[in-house]
Amino acid sequence: MIELIGVSKRFGDSLAVNNISLKVASGEFCCLVGTSGCGKSTTLRMINRLIEHSDGEIHIDQQPIRSFREEVLRRRIGYAIQSTGLFPHWTVARNIGLVPRLLKWSQAAVDARVEELMALLRLDMAEFAGKYPHQLSGGQAQRVGVARALAADPDILLMDEPFGALDPITRENLQLELRDLQARLGKTIVFVTHDMDEALRLADHLVVMHEGQVVQQGHPLELLREPANEFVTSLLGGEDRGLKEAALLPVSERMVPLGVGGVARDRIVQTASLRDALSMMLWRRVERLAVVDDEDIPIGELSFRRLVGARGHE
């Protein structure tokens, strides 16, 4: 668990972060969003003491971060950044094994861990282990960056716009994989981004920052439904909010179980989002979709009226 209590950061006379309080529970995926210069990166970097906070307290698992030596603290916190910062003179395998080696694991343990991580991040061992960072594509380099951050199996992972420089398709793939990875490994993640769609897709806990302060925080749906002010509304996409909310809700939420009327021709899986369902309706020019489970067996139906959440019986 990470806890920030009344934390501020001053650079000279200017206040980069102004009295923020924030709690990230264990296993939670927390996204810090905001415009550039709002202090989100500074906040992240204060957690592993790359930047020292000026006021307030930061605790990790109830212990103040200043009670650890800097290096010791950082070795137990994973860290991934946009430009990856892979060491250009080291191979992929050596880059990934960095923190375990700093922690003086045996060579055999390091090798085993590197192999495990490469499999986890779908990097083919035979192909990539001996490559150098400049031989990798942006997406591959970022996978290596994430693998390196996870190497010593830290409970906490700090990520500073890790997918910011990737093309949209690679970015989405990595987002989905990260989400999946987090669900499986139960890491506590603090993730900085200015991409609202990315934040909504990933976060359990969304923190909106503006001019060094936390404007609003909570579950993404909560923020979408009740934005605290104009700034949050516009950041969340203004009129697009409806679509963004729909993207967060699964079809199963609004469907009617099977048995009412006939089965529609067009099918959608229950785990798809309402946004996907709406798009399918627009595209196929239909008002009804059959909802199927993972095995393609119909389990319900979704009508346009139900999708938009209109009240009353259709």
Binding site: V72, R74, I81, S83, L86, V99
Partner: peptide, 15 residues
Amino acid sequence: IDPAVREAARGMGMT
């Protein structure tokens, strides 16, 4: 040296 490399090195906990 790319500042990101140094940043990462610090962030990983190298002295």
